[in-house]
């Protein structure tokens, strides 16, 4: 399952709830305002650390750039993808579940 989160973890519990249901094989992609979850040194960084360390957490690069977050500064283990990468994640790890 590919899960997407599109809200800031500082605003809603969507990221925390998603992570609680990621299971052992799920992938997480943060998009739109969800990309603030990829900031390093935050509460979300700690929440994400497990699955990020296993290479299961991604963030959408164009949404980072639009918001002034340097892709080089995201939390350890979080992988930056473009829209083509988003598509590939759905192909490789679908179905898709949006944590809207």
């Amino acid at each position: 399952m590919l899960h997407t989160v599109n809200k800031s973890p500082l605003q809603t519990n969507d990221l925390a709830s998603c992570l609680g249901h990621l299971g052992t094989d799920g992938r997480l992609l943060m998009i739109e305002d969800g990309v603030y979850g990829a900031l390093s040194g935050t509460e979300a960084t700690r929440q994400l650390a497990g699955p990020a360390g296993e290479g299961r957490v991604y963030v959408l690069g164009p949404d980072l750039e639009a918001r002034g977050v340097d892709a080089g500064t995201v939390a350890d283990g979080v992988q930056v993808v473009d829209y083509a990468g988003f598509v590939q994640l759905v192909v490789d790890h679908g179905p898709h579940q949006a944590w809207v």
């Binding site: 399952m1 609680g20 249901h21 179905p95 949006a98």
Partner: peptide, 18 residues
């Protein structure tokens, strides 16, 4: 429980969330 819910979600072909 949450763990079981996660398993149920992972078992789907199509997930619609609104």
């Amino acid at each position: 429980d949450r763990a079981r819910m996660a398993e149920l979600m992972a078992d789907q072909d199509v997930v619609m969330s609104f």
